[in-house]
Design a protein around this nucleic acid. Sequence first.
DNA 1: TACGCTTAATCAATCGTTTGATTAATTTTG
DNA 2: CAAAATTAATCAAACGATTGATTAAGCGTA
Lengths: 215, 215
Amino acid sequence: MEKDKIDKKDHILDVAEKVFADLGYDGASTRTISGEAGVNMAMLNYYFGSKEGLFLAVFKRKIDSFRTLLQNIGSDESMNAWDKLDKCIDNYVERIIANNCFQKLINREVSMNKRGDLTDKIIEILMVNVYEVKRIMEEGVNNGLFYKDVDVPLVIATLFGTKNYIVNMPQLSSLILGHDIRDEKFMENELKPRVKTYMKRLLKAYLVNEHDNSK
Amino acid sequence: MEKDKIDKKDHILDVAEKVFADLGYDGASTRTISGEAGVNMAMLNYYFGSKEGLFLAVFKRKIDSFRTLLQNIGSDESMNAWDKLDKCIDNYVERIIANNCFQKLINREVSMNKRGDLTDKIIEILMVNVYEVKRIMEEGVNNGLFYKDVDVPLVIATLFGTKNYIVNMPQLSSLILGHDIRDEKFMENELKPRVKTYMKRLLKAYLVNEHDNSK
DNA sequence: TACGCTTAATCAATCGTTTGATTAATTTTG
DNA sequence: CAAAATTAATCAAACGATTGATTAAGCGTA
């Protein structure tokens, strides 16, 4: 039946997404993916043409949800820059920290130097998110809500970088935090609100401060 | 001659570091590394035992030098926590942002969920550095120099995460910053002092602030 | 000669991919 | 409607290429 075919392809993509995230593109073999998905190895090539085709299919499936993540927030006229930034942080912590294996996959492949065709597409998608946040912050700077000399690009690096550091290196951040962040309960009840509070305080402290350099 | 042997080993490590960073651990073959270094393939195993041994040798060479640097800062009694943190930031920007291929290498391998002693060893060594910074910050909290309710683990995530975000995804951060960060001149004359200033202001604003949540 | 270094040749294992055969589903035909 | 023809889906097996690693012979120097 047609529906079963789609479900099976989707199941393969689900498994491939996780295996790619866990082992990397090179580390994930077609045998491992097919084995984990419970399908014959040849099915990967039958459905997706090649290993790279499978990887691209995994990636493309996620594109739409990422494209619309923040656009609604940015265009809401009823909120000021503070509220928008608040909502951005909430959304990122909820959506991206929770479901992180795709983020790991992306960041690892982008950090490679020798994968130009694939990298450009990923960069383009990531920039959509970045640009929304950038616009919000510049709005806050322009109307005087934020301190005029804030370094917007580097604040973005902090916002996304802090998040990446936690989710991309769970073993390391678990040691730093003193809990296993892969524990669902801890993640949901403690880490998420903690990261939200921290990020808001951190950005607030910096964005409104006059950056007095005197000692 | 003894000296030549050491120089050759060092040259192999230099090349291996770059190839590992560009292609990842799995993507970098021993043939590619030996070919790039201009030595026979068997020399890698002769000198370093195995591919993993070579990787660990690359890794240890970098981390050891950096650990001693951090420890010197941390144990300096003439500086308070502020000055130490200042110096940490300066050193990180100078040493790690400039020579970034090693950082990319580490972060990519740690972000894998691949089980094995290789990842564990990397984590273990990385934690030594993390603890040094953590110790400095807790020192500042304990003697009242920093605000008592700061979230030290997450500040560490910000400190390292911001840096990682910039150096691990140069294509993306170049777009955000509006300049190619792989341009040596821009990196040296603009980005480095800019990141230093930003990180210090950001951490200072957060660490001394009372985190007023009222609007 | 004896020893440390270097090499080409080679190993078994694994890689991504392809093949040919078989089964299941669908369409066409009488 | 039923039989035949066609297409789609699935599988085990094997392909050539490449992987990390090892071997034994050759090299230069002390």
